[in-house]
Amino acid sequence: MGLEKFNPSLATHDLIQDLKWSPELREAFAADEAAVLDRYPLRQDERRAIETRNFLALYDMGLHPYLGGQFARLIFGNEAGKGATVAVNKLVESLQGKGSVA
């Protein structure tokens, strides 16, 4: 699974970039995820994949894998050797066939 499915128009890319670049948005995402998702023109299946932490589905829609890795860290943890390791393992679990890892 590489870059062959990459779809630059997927709105999730903007969501991830904004979360990375804005501590305030990260706080809002943690407090009320649905309200933050409402701000982005997500497809129905795209939003559902985010809500169920289904990275495999997001990648099939065209999410860039590098941003997918960062999205996992935004959700599961970003600290070296701790949350970031959990994030990597959850992501791999999803991509290797499990789909939803909510």
């Binding site: 894998p65 890795g69 990597v88």
Partner: peptide
């Protein structure tokens, strides 16, 4: 390396 990929490790 394959950051963010199914073969992350």
């Amino acid at each position: 390396h394959e950051p963010g990929g199914a073969r992350y490790y």
